[in-house]
């Protein structure tokens, strides 16, 4: 990808590359609590079936993943593992925070052991609200993320521009 790294990529090529990226997201599932079951329904249930959106679950390692779904309550004990997971993922990487607990602490907003929002430690692209969100809500979150990827300019990073997303 010399074109990308030079920072001068023609617009049609950008679009083509983005279509390729958005329909081949490898999704690493970081299932923690109740939301993990709804995420499991998204992956495993024929009724929801995330693969039709071009999202491939179960990568062997976070090093192969493009997208991580943090689903469930993030406790303070879990934080180092999540940070390490995020650092292991190759760029460009995306994070979906699923459920109220991962968004902001949810029903455990006054608990002593719960991290109030995973966005305190890693940047989050899409927040999926709900306790737990229905599987359809996670599917919509993935669709929103795909829209976001579609509007990105992969060459911006090499030009040194701040990445602006409409």
């Amino acid at each position: 990808m010399g074109l990308v790294e030079s920072g001068k990529m023609p617009a049609p090529l950008t679009k083509l590359l983005n279509i390729g990226r958005k329909y081949s997201l490898w999704m690493y599932q970081w299932g923690l609590a109740c939301c993990a079951i709804e995420m499991g329904a998204v992956i495993g249930s024929p009724r929801y079936d995330v693969m039709r959106l071009g999202v491939i679950p179960f990568p062997a390692s976070p090093r192969q993943a493009d997208l991580v779904v943090i689903s469930g309550t993030v406790t303070d004990k879990m934080v180092p593992s999540i940070l390490r997971l995020y650092q292991q993922m190759p760029d460009p990487k995306y994070v979906i925070s699923m459920g109220s607990c991962a968004n902001c602490g949810g029903p455990y907003w006054d608990s002593y052991s719960v991290t109030k929002g995973v966005d305190q430690i890693i940047p989050v692209d899409v927040y999926v609200p709900g306790c737990p969100p229905r599987p359809e809500a996670l599917l919509e979150g993935i669709v929103l993320l795909q829209e976001r990827i579609m509007n990105e300019d992969p060459a911006a990073r090499w030009r040194g521009d701040p990445i602006v997303v409409d």
Binding site: T75, K77, Y108, D110
Partner: peptide, 21 residues
């Protein structure tokens, strides 16, 4: 302890219908 959320302590500051939630 990776999923310890402190239910027993939280239940002390919730009313009975809230504890059910």
């Amino acid at each position: 302890g990776y999923m310890h959320r402190g239910y027993e302590k939280l239940a002390e500051v919730r009313t009975y219908p809230q504890v059910t939630t």
